[in-house]
Amino acid sequence: MYKETAKEEVARWRRKLLKRPSMAGRYTKKWQMKMNNMIPERVHSVVTNSIKNMVHVTLTGSEHTANKEPLYDVSLEEREEKVRELIKTYKRTAAAEGAGTGAGGIFLGLADFPLLLGIKMKFLFDVASTYGYDVRDYRERLFVLLLFQLAFSSGDKRVELLNRIDQWEDEYNQLPSKREYMEKVDWKDFQLTYRDYIDLPKMLQMIPGFGAIVGAAANYHFLDLLGETAMNGFRIRMFEQEKNGADH
């Protein structure tokens, strides 16, 4: 019964994800692009470098993977109870961090980027382990990055990423060595997708005083969105493996 409910939730989430953006959403995107041109280059550099460093650490580092044993031999319902607790915990952490840096205006607002990225990646690694996937395998870390991109993408990019999640098992089995893969990562595309999504609320976060409210709310929302994406992404994968009789 729980599994059937989860499958229905995946179907609803998929429909919502692929829905055409509203007129307000399209207008916001245009306004955001104008705002981007007014942002000091220093701000763009901090964001770009933070994201690139985060991706490098995710794929090559051991900070979030050491001693992280995947959770085996438990039901989907038990796994997801734990995941929902993780979402609550990380949302509180991200909101507190966003409020603290948002209160300080532009300089602390800049500091928020790498801090929030770290929180998000640690959250995704914990979720992956809870679903029973071993993040010490670089291919599992690639799937985590795929979920991260999907959460903060829109339009055609979203369709492309969702298709990759649907067909992940095929891609997983054809992946090259880690070194070869790292040489082919499109850093620029990855950075712009994420940066464009979060620029609007983060601009407001850099206004002293007002930024504390926006920072807490924005970070809380981002973790909520990431949690929903991660849960449904791993569900798709588990249901696909189950259908094909594969273990992970």
Rank of each mutant, 00 (worst) to 15 (best):
Y2T: 07
E8C: 03
V10S: 08
A11G: 00
R15H: 13
R15I: 15
R15N: 11
L18P: 04
P21E: 07
G25R: 06
G25C: 12
Y27K: 06
T28V: 13
K29D: 11
M35G: 13
R42M: 14
V47H: 01
N49C: 04
I51E: 06
N53Q: 10
H56G: 00
T58A: 13
E63T: 06
K68D: 07
P70S: 15
L71R: 04
E78R: 12
E78T: 02
T93D: 14
G102V: 03
A103V: 08
A103T: 09
F107W: 03
A111T: 03
F113G: 12
L116M: 09
L116T: 04
L117N: 15
K122R: 15
K122N: 13
L124K: 05
F125I: 05
F125M: 02
D126G: 15
D134A: 00
R136S: 03
R136K: 03
E140P: 01
F143T: 02
V144M: 03
L147V: 02
F148W: 06
F148I: 06
S154L: 13
S154A: 08
G155W: 03
K157Q: 14
E160C: 00
E160A: 06
R164H: 12
D166K: 09
D166F: 10
W168N: 06
E169S: 10
E171I: 07
N173Y: 14
L175K: 10
K178L: 07
M182F: 08
M182S: 01
K184I: 04
D189T: 12
Y197T: 13
P201T: 02
P201S: 05
P201R: 08
L204W: 02
Q205Y: 00
M206D: 00
P208K: 10
G209Y: 11
A212E: 11
G215T: 13
A217P: 08
A218C: 09
A218Y: 15
N219P: 01
Y220M: 14
Y220R: 14
F222T: 06
L223M: 12
L225P: 06
G227L: 01
G227A: 11
T229K: 08
T229Q: 10
A230K: 11
R235T: 01
E242P: 12
E242N: 05
A246G: 14
